[in-house]
Design a binder for these strands. Structure first.
Lengths: 250, 250
DNA sequence: CACCCGTCTTCCACTGGACGGAAGGCGTGG
DNA sequence: CCACGCCTTCCGTCCAGTGGAAGACGGGTG
């Protein structure tokens, strides 16, 4: 094309979707154009089509938002709602026993995505959002997912910058590597104040026939936490879920 | 273009997404091509790009499924996860009080889409799926949404074929019209065995500043149902939710 | 009121991304 | 062995897409 030869129409449409984020779920046409790096007239045309189909919706304020039709299609993702449907009963059981925050996440590239969470009203407040992303190297679920990720993924995470969230976040590649080996050995992960100074999480893997596909965790206040007591509960829930997915829990 | 001049690239990409449905969430390349009505080579090219972005994923069986990235973007839909986040606590309260199925739906065109449901283990089994669609003229939520839909939408639904699910489904346009007027008057809808012969649902509107945006309902076994007793509960929940959305509940 | 600023919408002549038929590889099973 | 369905790649043609420019719109300011 004229502006940026080599850029396909499809990639431009996808760039428009990329422009939306949890932090900015409503955008004007101009904002959309700037974020996607496309001329206004181009965006105007493409957006009209997305609007007609229902991928985008336009509010009374003139801003564009993600449309329900796209949510509907997204709900067909096996690793999204599909996984959630199977996991929810197990997560609820875990919640009933502990009355603590229960989280379910999968790995997407070099980050994790939260698929579902049950936030206990009496439990520690956690700032995770369903559909939100987070780094792999700090949380309990992240450590489990990273420990069972392909070697290539692990290397890229270990090589890349490891953001420090608290004084206890493991940012040394060597230590993180040993940490992951330990997670594989014992079959669960503990993240003690590595994300915030008030929370501790214990996570276990969820296995399908193709390997570890998700991670389940409990997030509790660190001062009333007993990882050794919580681990068997989370692991048991992970096994139940693994079996439901046709996997072979260890 | 050559095959079907007038068809845009974007519409073709969207047609590929349309090919997926709850009944067939995993498709081969050929199936995808047939469903979208596009040549195989065209689909092959477009799908490769969707795969790279994460809109689609490919399983070990070679079939394509909706990818997590699309689920993630879809989760930004205000009428999808956004609404669910606000509604869930209210729905849980309603469930705690009744221990019956609680459902939340919005209107999308001439149908409704289920946004969330809480299925009581002891409650009547309902075959609704989160992300699934249904006709507007039979269910409790549907009647509420239809009763408060723009006149143009109502006319099109009344004109179109009204599928009969049971002997009690209202399929006469005149009767349905009176039914909708009654729903508006009393502020709630009752669907007594109009979908299945074992279930009854009571639904109430959810109002945001722009009008009725969703409907909340209880679905119970018809033989132990007392609509008059349930209505106030559902209406109260609807009002709480309306207020949370900045609406003015009546 | 006139002015400016940012936003949105529409128009049009050019061009390169998209097209799709065809041919080739791959696995299955009759 | 061949036939069948599926997937992948190639290449010459051509129309959908492009983006600058011009104009409408809307709100805030002097």
């Amino acid at each position: 094309m004229r502006g940026q030869p080599g850029r396909t129409v499809t990639s431009r449409v996808l760039a428009l979707l990329d422009a939306f984020s949890p932090a900015s779920p409503a955008l004007t046409l101009s904002e959309l154009a700037r974020r996607a790096g496309l001329p206004l007239s181009t965006v105007h045309r493409r957006v009209a089509e997305l609007l007609a189909w229902g991928a985008l919706e336009r509010g009374g304020d003139g801003r564009y938002r993600i449309g329900l039709r796209l949510w509907e299609v997204g709900s067909l993702a096996p690793r999204g709602l599909g996984l959630r449907e199977v996991a929810l009963p197990v997560m609820e059981d875990l919640y009933e026993v502990t009355h603590e925050n229960v989280q379910l996440a999968v790995r997407q590239g070099l980050e994790l995505v939260f698929i579902e969470r049950i936030a206990g009203r009496r439990a520690v407040p956690v700032r995770t959002r369903v559909g939100g992303r987070f780094a792999l190297h700090a949380t309990g679920v992240g450590l489990v997912l990273l420990a069972h990720a392909p070697a290539e993924v692990q290397e890229r995470v270990l090589a890349g910058p490891l953001e420090r969230y608290t004084a206890l976040t493991v940012t040394d590649p060597g230590r993180l590597r040993r940490c992951l080996a330990e997670v594989r050995r014992v079959g669960y992960a503990v993240s003690d104040r590595q994300v915030t100074m008030d929370a501790l999480s214990v996570a276990a893997p969820v296995r399908a026939p193709e390997g570890v596909v998700a991670a389940l965790s409990l997030v509790v206040a660190h001062d009333r936490a007993d990882p050794v007591a919580l681990a068997p509960l989370v692991q048991a829930a992970g096994r139940v879920l693994s079996r439901a997915l046709g996997g072979t829990p260890r």
